[in-house]
Nucleic acid binder design. Sequence first.
DNA 1: AGTTGTGAAGGTATTCACAGCG
DNA 2: CGCTGTGAATACCTTCACAACT
Lengths: 211, 211
Amino acid sequence: MGIPKPTAERLSQLARLLEQRGKPGTPISSAEIEHLTGWPSHTIRKDISALAAESDISTNSGYDPRTLAKAIKQALGFSIETNKCCIVGLGRLGSAFLEYSGFQSSPFLLCAGFDSNVNRIEILKADFPLFPTFKMKEVISRLAIRYAILCVPPAQAQATADKLIECGVTGIANFTPSILSVPSGIEVENVSIIDALGSLAARLAAKRSLQ
Amino acid sequence: MGIPKPTAERLSQLARLLEQRGKPGTPISSAEIEHLTGWPSHTIRKDISALAAESDISTNSGYDPRTLAKAIKQALGFSIETNKCCIVGLGRLGSAFLEYSGFQSSPFLLCAGFDSNVNRIEILKADFPLFPTFKMKEVISRLAIRYAILCVPPAQAQATADKLIECGVTGIANFTPSILSVPSGIEVENVSIIDALGSLAARLAAKRSLQ
DNA sequence: AGTTGTGAAGGTATTCACAGCG
DNA sequence: CGCTGTGAATACCTTCACAACT
């Protein structure tokens, strides 16, 4: 019941791939997706079958990109509601997300930024308002924000996370190298460049060892 | 044979946690790690047992943080050699990594940055040299760089990746929203804020649905 | 007591192989 | 035929339960 986590991750990336591929009219086969992504074609077919979508998704020469992308987004709940997010910590990393282009076709909406340095808030520009940290409680509850992108210095990570949770945030994308501890019911996703490089190295080492 | 991927990810984070915890002398129990991370204590014990480490790693009241951290790093190949990395694309996101503090206790060494905008290279400061893009081939092969952190605009992502691979890079941490296609033998790790938020949302939805 | 360590059981995801369809 | 779709087999990871140790 429900879509397996690894499957959901692949499908989410597949939807992005379909959009960036262009040629929305010409069908795409599981073999072509294998070539583009490296995932075996049978895995892709299984993943797609988990969508339990209508049958007009595929033809005799592959999948229809538009229909498939739509089916994926629907199955993953991307269209049901837009989830509000805020950025916390507008240093180099945090402020980089102010102009990140990837949010458009996603179910997530950036709608606030916070930093304890009032000066920064006045200098930086964004499509949504920026606030000093002491207004966090008021803004997060007023806008009903449920997700936070945490980009503060490592030493402040845990304290800031605690505060966010108190304000009603239930999901934290943690760009800090700190490991956060949170009460049950709250989810954290660690987005660490070190972990990313680590798993690259591990996979390359695994390949090496089997000749 | 070999350490399972999910286990390796948890252990890598655990090593960071042990270091940031302080008190390197006082033992830590699997129950305490469960409290800090949310991973069940039996999973942690299984993970640690996969290290096949010497027995002085644990006492009757828990694990010795220093010994455990060392054992993890060794098992994950963190100490065998330092892996050289470069940053490609020094816009907001890329330049943020120039001052990222998480590299110290990792097996990865940032040793070059590239951008096509010569002006940026002169303005930005880093502990390692920055080069214009046309020197990529020469620098990457001279320094024997094998990992790249890709931070260019999405439209240039695939072309830049192709070039990096041609230069000898075998692992790419892709911070771009683009999905890259690469030949076999090359590994890509997608580090996407959208995917991170997506998996947060999926996990929270799963929790909701089971009451 | 309170801890780790681990074989065995259970659950999930991947891979296979081939049926079915245009 | 080339393609998708899917039950069955396999491999993998997690969870359990309890023995062993201090």
